[in-house]
């Protein structure tokens, strides 16, 4: 089986298809207590939720614990999803990212995290273990490569590392204002490179 080969005839899947939006429909059904809809959402998003949390939290057991909390919160608060404010995937991933950050910023291991270097967090170090992830990863990596070094390191440390921008400034030895604008400029470049629509 060669997933890449069989995709060759497909148009460039640069943006999420209808199934991405379908997640919003699932959330509406979940809000009505539909467990089947939740199971379907689990199948679509548990990989990104767990993967993102593990990047930030690192420890697998804690990552699993936080993932469970996040997915349960999605179930509990599905009625509060507002499609006008962003996509369903973004709503879920925002919950996941914030919970992961709460965990690392409050944990006693926080000081050990300071030892980490930006390089360890860059996406290419990881091995994609799903076809979907490897396609997404390839695209994201291509766009990250188009950033300046400071932009790339700031975004990577902040998002995948869970660092605050003050901590990022400390790690990279740069001024706070510099990090602030590098993160914004870099993200805007990523947005345009990935063809994100909102």
């Amino acid at each position: 089986m060669n997933p890449r080969g069989s995709r060759a005839s497909q148009p460039e899947p640069a943006r999420p298809g209808g199934s991405e939006q379908y997640l919003g429909q699932l959330l509406a059904l979940i809000a009505r207590g539909d467990e089947g809809a939740f199971e379907s959402l689990y199948d679509h998003l548990s990989g990104p939720v767990y993967g993102l949390i593990q990047k930030v939290v690192r420890d697998p057991a804690q990552s699993e614990e936080v993932s469970q909390e996040v997915l349960l919160e999605v179930w509990r608060t599905a009625a509060r999803f507002d499609a006008a404010k962003g996509s369903a995937a973004t709503w879920v991933m925002t919950i996941a990212h914030r919970r992961a950050i709460d965990r690392v910023r409050s944990s006693s291991a926080a000081s050990a995290r300071e030892q980490r270097t930006a390089e360890r967090l860059i996406v290419e170090d990881e091995v994609a273990d799903t076809v979907q992830a490897s396609l997404d990863r390839e695209r994201v990596r291509r766009c990250l490569d188009g950033l300046t070094e400071v932009q790339r390191e700031s975004i990577t440390l902040a998002y995948y590392g869970g660092y605050s921008y003050r901590q990022v400034a400390g790690v990279l030895g740069a001024a706070l204002g510099t990090i602030k604008t590098r993160i914004r400029d870099g993200l805007i470049r990523m947005r345009d490179c990935l063809g994100v629509e909102w």
Binding site: E35, S46, G47, G51, S67, L71, G86, R139, Y159, V196
Partner: peptide, 27 residues
């Protein structure tokens, strides 16, 4: 909104198969 959607792409790129017990625990 646009930058958050962009961050979601970073999250999707980090997808990993969750531990097998997670699904049962969550359901």
């Amino acid at each position: 909104r646009g930058l958050r959607e962009t961050a979601t792409r970073l999250a999707m790129a980090a997808a990993r198969t969750p531990p097998p017990g997670l699904r049962h625990a969550v359901m």
